[in-house]
């Protein structure tokens, strides 16, 4: 049996109860927020891994990655061989005013040069300054956390599996030799 006005009273009770409870507000600058794993803060660049394949720039839906490079000729190791050429990165910049944090560049990078960093404090007063260059992107690499541990019972990562296979083969060859 509902008395008239009981709904109104219920509403008042809800707000009063909420007032007595602890608030959920995070006091951000004083207390750093607790970020969940794989938080998408900013994109870091490990430029040692970059081969200037341009895949990231091409796959980016916003065209927010700028890459400049030049070719460099390396002297041949062997006098009979031809001189090798190699791409050298001149500029790698991401315009974070365009970036929509989809992460396609990171997925598509075949050499693991791009990583998600949870760092999010890179606001600027001018939108032009949101285009961050390679040195800044490299710095952010230091904030990239170690990859989370695998689930118990998960399959071994491919590179480790491959390395183990090779090691096992070597071990088998070394063990089989005296026989």
């Amino acid at each position: 049996m509902n008395l008239p006005g009981s709904g109104l009273a219920k509403g008042l009770a809800v707000t009063l109860r909420t007032m007595t409870k602890k608030t959920v507000t995070a006091q951000y600058p004083e207390v750093q927020p607790h970020l969940p794993p794989r938080s998408r803060g900013v994109i870091g660049l490990l430029e040692e891994n970059c081969t200037v394949c341009m895949l990231c720039a091409r796959e980016c839906p916003d065209w927010c990655i700028y890459i400049d490079s030049h070719k460099e000729t390396l002297p041949a190791v062997d006098p009979n061989a031809r001189a090798r050429t190699r791409n050298v990165l001149d500029r790698f910049a991401i315009d974070f005013s365009l970036c929509m944090y989809c992460g396609i560049c990171i997925e598509v990078c075949p050499f693991d040069a791009l990583f998600w960093s949870p760092e999010f404090e890179y606001a600027e007063t001018d939108i032009l300054e949101l285009t961050h260059e390679r040195d800044k992107l490299r710095e952010w690499m230091w904030t990239v956390p170690a990859p989370p541990a695998l689930d118990p019972g998960a399959e071994e990562p491919k590179e480790i599996a491959a390395a183990r296979k090779a090691a096992d083969k070597l071990a088998a060859a070394a063990g089989g030799d005296p026989a």
Partner: peptide
């Protein structure tokens, strides 16, 4: 303050 706490916030700090 009251309004903030009734909405689970802190209000001006």
């Amino acid at each position: 303050k009251v309004m903030a706490h009734m909405q689970g916030r802190l209000g001006p700090m």
